[in-house]
Amino acid sequence: MKQFVRSQSFGAVIGVTVMLIAFTVIDFSGWWNRSTLANVVQFSAILGLVAMGQALVIMTKEIDLSVGSVYGLTGVAFITLEPKLGVPGSTLAALAIAAAIGAFQGLVVVRGKLPSMIVTLAGLFAARGVIYVWTGGTVQNFSEAARNNWLTGLLGGQIFGIEAAIFWMVGLCLVLNVLLWGTRYGNRLLATGGSLDSAESRGVRTDHVKILAFMLCSLLAGFAGILTLADRPQTHVTLGDLMELEAIASAVIGGCLLTGGRGSLVGAVLGAFIIVSFRYELIALGAPSSWFTTFVGIVLIVAVIFNQYLARRAGHSV
């Protein structure tokens, strides 16, 4: 129990618990029904994938502002390349684009010794610009044959009546947790974010660690974009617009500290669940939908204060 309380995702678990109690009291029948939960969990899975990638980068004491645009560009590439490459080919090509963006940004950050905020801000604009230029303003349609392709069904359909995105998110969350907590790379990633000098003095190639973290972040964002469009291919050039802010908020609410070296992938997913749930429930309760933005700001501040408090209690210097 003591270990659980000291864990990085404890704040997010408390947040989810409080939220669920509040929704149960305020709107029991509206919240606890299949339609609501299916919708919220599906969109939480999509945002959760992006948030997990963001969490990995934040744990290395960096940040990636380009994830929304990478999510959009990868999704657009998946749709646009499909007529020439087919669904499997366009999926691989789109993911390759995402990985290349992540690798490039990581390289520029570590080799150029530039702040990741600036590099990925440039990435945000550049990727969005490519979407505009490439599409000419309109993302093309996804053919009937492509919609019926087996891979499209596996990425965007339903499995046992549950949206495929949820299975993908759970599966990837498990894999990434094993990577983070059960491999040398995970140990090095946390060490890099915790104390760069100390990690380097122990022979950790922090540059490699960071580049791989950026690549994973872009890949996860891109994969989330593909899952979104495989499910609903009707989209627009605004795909992923401002998603980077929700992803960062999810990671921070989920226990990631911007000072690096501490964070939780499960927490990031729970943070995404909190954000999506509140958006849904605020509207269901009749609040103007733009109040959601205010809400995210408030929750973010509360989460940072609470997570810092927990981190200090756990003996981390923040």
Partner: peptide, 15 residues
């Protein structure tokens, strides 16, 4: 943003 828009609209239609 398409996913956000669908999430928002579905919430409204449900309630």
């Amino acid at each position: 943003e398409p996913a956000t828009a669908r999430n928002t609209l579905q919430s409204y239609l449900s309630s």
